[in-house]
């Protein structure tokens, strides 16, 4: 808490951006790929800028490319919106954990700051909160960096067109997994984490095998955290009686 009181919002903003530099690399790798694929799917440069700027959600944008149609009359508008809604449902879980960053009771327009929340700056901010740090400015700094690197690499990828094949040739497809694995290890608080993490992982593996898409994140996150909460709740009841 002491560092939070001493540093200005500007310092926090840049600290958040700095903290997100490692994950911005994986954002950039995916951004390049999305740009290349968007050109293949027939989006115009204006549509690329609009979608990346307004929707700003990687997995939902990848799914949208699958559904896109160059002919306006054939564009599946309803399914596109529904898919974005379902793929992004997991953000309910993410932004709910950021509530302690706002000291005020009524949020109003400030809640729109959640627009800049991505997996990357969310994870960095939650890790900072666990250390007693983290702030809205910190979150926004990471979000601004993720936004810039996403938009920039989308356009570069679009420009490169089909010149780039998939980033797996350079092992860059693993940057995402490696980053989240290291973040997960950094969240280790003790043996009480074993069960929820195992349950979340197994549920996610099962879900990705059965349903596919990005449902495994939502299912694993809910089932795993419920398992952890149930264990903790039962343990506290045993202590009371």
């Amino acid at each position: 808490m002491s560092t939070l009181l001493r540093t200005s919002p500007q310092d926090q903003f840049f600290a958040g951006a700095r903290a997100c530099v490692p994950v911005a690399v994986s954002v950039a790798a995916y951004g390049l790929v999305w740009g290349v694929l968007a050109r293949g799917a027939g989006l115009s440069p204006l549509e690329v800028v609009l979608m990346s700027g307004l929707v700003f959600a990687g997995s939902a944008q990848f799914v949208a490319l699958d559904q896109w149609n160059q002919v306006p009359a054939l564009l599946p508008i309803g399914p596109l919106i529904l898919a974005a809604f379902i793929v992004n449902l997991r953000y309910l879980l993410l932004t709910a954990t950021l509530r302690p960053l706002f000291p005020e009771r009524r949020l109003g327009w400030r809640s729109l700051s959640m627009y800049l929340v991505t997996d990357e700056n969310w994870a960095m901010t939650v890790a900072a909160m666990a250390r007693g740090e983290g702030s809205i400015a910190f979150l926004m700094g990471g979000g601004a960096l993720a936004f810039c690197s996403w938009m920039l690499t989308n356009l570069v990828g679009y420009g490169l067109g089909s010149a780039i094949d998939d980033p797996s040739r350079w092992g860059l497809d693993f940057a995402f997994t490696a980053t989240f694995l290291a973040l997960l290890l950094g969240m280790w608080k003790g043996r009480q984490d074993i069960v929820p993490w195992l349950v979340a992982g197994l549920a996610a593996i099962l879900t990705s095998k059965v349903i596919g898409g990005s449902w495994h994140i939502l299912v694993g996150g809910i089932v795993g955290s419920l398992a952890g909460a149930t264990l903790e709740w039962r343990r506290s009841r045993v202590h009371q009686s």
Binding site: T177, L184, P196, G201, G224, S225, G228
Partner: peptide
């Protein structure tokens, strides 16, 4: 219970993100 649930969400979501890839 609900507070404990919220506390466990970040780790569970990260585990769910990583596990299928591995």
């Amino acid at each position: 219970f609900a507070a404990a649930w919220l506390r466990h969400i970040p780790g569970a979501v990260l585990a769910a993100l990583v596990a299928p890839a591995l």
